[in-house]
Amino acid sequence: MRSLAPIATVLAVIVALWYAAAVWMNAQWVYDQAARAGVEVTFGQMVVDTMAQERPVLPVPHQVFAELAKSTVGMAVTSKKSLVYHGWITISATLLGFAMGTGFGRLLAVGIIHNKAMDMSVMPWAIASQTVPILAIAPMIIVVLSSVGVQGLVPKAIISAFLSFFPVLVGMVKGLRSPDGMQLDQLATWNASRTQVFWKLRLPSSMPYLFASLKVGIAASLVGAIVGEMPTGAVAGLGARLLSGSYYGQTIQIWAALFAAAIVAASLVMIVGVIERATLKRMGMA
């Protein structure tokens, strides 16, 4: 209960600021409409109007949550307007991309640990890959893959993997190198092979690092999937929902999709967190 009060306070302040900002930003449209109709609006009337517009500059929280409720529990999940439908499409691309990206990141990390040439050469390329704006190469990946007949889930997953491999690579290299000199000397006294050192010491030791990067990685995967949905001609997915909302000035729809994305991201990170806690506790490392 003690920790609830500060959280509620911060939340209340954010909501209050949000309402204030919405009134301030949407007021112009109310005054313009009134001037066009040749009527006067009172301040109270203006405030009420700013919260009930169809396409406000900034929708107020209750509009966003009403839209969120309507498009999740308020309609069939098969509907093309359902955020559950779009959300699932994005989540499936995210999870596939996450699996591919984290797998690739782990493989590269293992290579870097065991191969001097890879140790010296891979990291600069990995860093360079992350400096490329994802918005610039996402359409190219979609176009190139579609020209060879790969469409749908996979191209989005690849963009998602492109973003998520990096944190896992960095964390995993650090984790696999975390055993100290004494632990490595210990294995040397038993004449352990590199493979044995890897499976018995390096890999288990890297788990705390791996999970920390998986949390970053899953959030990056979601961003990748959403970005990947944007250049596909706005067919389906949360990214498509964002894009079509902005095409038609449906600000409430955009905000609802944004919140849906945020909720999905938070849930995914939390799931990884739960698995992390259970695993590390079992391994005696938490």
């Binding site: 004494m182 000397d185 294995l187 038993w190 004449n191 018995k200 288990p204």
Partner: peptide, 23 residues
């Protein structure tokens, strides 16, 4: 060594059998 250096994810028996597994 100065530190016991037991692996936290292994039981005592599993720690003691580590060199035996390796060999």
């Amino acid at each position: 060594f100065q530190a016991a250096g037991l692996y936290p994810w292994r039981t005592i028996a599993k720690n003691v059998s580590l060199p035996l597994e390796i060999m």
